[in-house]
Design a binder for these strands. Structure first.
Lengths: 213, 213
DNA sequence: TTGTCATCTGTCATGAACTGACATAAGTTA
DNA sequence: TAACTTATGTCAGTTCATGACAGATGACAA
């Protein structure tokens, strides 16, 4: 990797760090692009060559996390039921983040903190989640040998995403509390759902579910 | 109601209509506040006295819908299980929208169309949904005589929201298709969940759920 | 009807978030 | 070193959003 590439990566990281520091210190809205750029000693115009917007720099790590979640899902064994695979992928992701070096971990932690305390960024995060949802649905549909338009893959991923969103909720600043809350919610979900709910119904067999009773 | 109030209401409606028309014709991003204001023949400054932002005017009807959903939920009988109450509240809301006069119905339809075709607005809509979620959780917790911090009320509303979000997904431009998709998803949800999942576990009794087996 | 008051509206000025165009600086490669 | 590619800085311009102030307009009492 050449000097040019390394410099770019360093500038990018420096911009993220400067942005997160300022967002934490004075709030997201009160921080200007000029201030972020000044701290890294680049022109404001250069900032926009690295990030499309102020929101983009705040959510770049969140976007990374989403990519990693998708990667973890595709790495799960095919035999696993879809919802189990999603749950385990999420647990793997949390594990990876826990094992990262301190500089990286701190970056993720500050990002989490900033996003949770800024409505605009919360909305942006949900947009990212929704965008990734489409890819998760496609992967789940592939595993179920179903179409991505079917209701079942969509429903499975929706339930999963809703659990993730419930984790996000105000609590869980530190990773440990977040992991605990995630486990509690996933346990509750497994207790609440019928066994085999995330596998397709065999159309030939009689439906064992007694409907609403 | 005085002349002043009526004029204000008319200006507000005119701004919404003009905005939706322009958003549909040229896209949300390509439309400027100046153009919206010009069409209603008010100054751009006046626009901001009615709406806090460009996003605000696009999502004002969505915000109204959320308020109505909460109202419908509180109107449901106390005896209903929470998830049933939420489902019925949503069905009532769709019914109300179907019965509205043509001008109003068209407004909601165009709003839906614009929001679905604009990522920024989709994110904003999800922010509104999330804000309302807190109120829904509070109401469900009240019905369950539980704390709003308990996992169960949060989980019930999360599942409900996930169904709503799955409805939103790309399809369902016209209200009929939307209602059908909602019914399909609610049916799927009821089939997937154990009977009584949305009622608190009696702590004294033995747990009838055989866990993951 | 008239005068007073509250409120709505337009005009102006300002700042921050972007974006395109172009010249300059820096790195890469022959 | 020379030529080429790419990153950066400067500058000008657009749009969104907000504060300040003055003028217009509906509300209301006498």
């Amino acid at each position: 990797m050449g000097l040019r590439e390394r410099k770019k990566q360093r500038t990018r990281d420096a911009l993220i760090d400067a942005a997160l520091d300022l967002f934490l210190a004075k709030g997201y809205e009160a921080t200007t692009i000029d201030q972020i750029a000044a701290r890294v000693e680049v022109s404001p115009r250069t900032f926009f060559r690295y990030f499309a917007s102020k929101e983009d720099v705040a959510l770049s790590l969140t976007a990374d996390e989403q990519k990693m979640l998708l990667a973890e899902l595709t790495a799960r064994p095919e035999s696993e039921p879809p919802f189990t695979a999603l749950s385990q992928a999420m647990r793997s992701l949390l594990g990876i983040l826990r094992e990262a070096d301190e500089a990286t971990a701190s970056r993720y932690r500050r990002c989490q903190q900033v996003v949770h305390s800024t409505p605009t960024l919360l909305a942006g995060m949900m947009r990212l989640l929704k965008e990734n949802e489409r890819r998760l649905v496609a992967e789940v549909a592939r595993r179920l040998k179903a179409s991505p338009c079917d209701l079942l893959p969509q429903f499975i991923v929706s339930v999963f995403v809703s659990v993730i969103l419930a984790c996000v909720d105000e609590h869980a600043q530190d990773p440990a509390a977040l992991a605990r809350r995630l486990d509690d919610l996933l346990t509750l979900a497994e207790r609440s759902l019928r066994p085999g709910w995330d596998m397709p119904v065999r159309s030939g067999a009689a439906d064992p579910a007694p409907a609403t009773g």
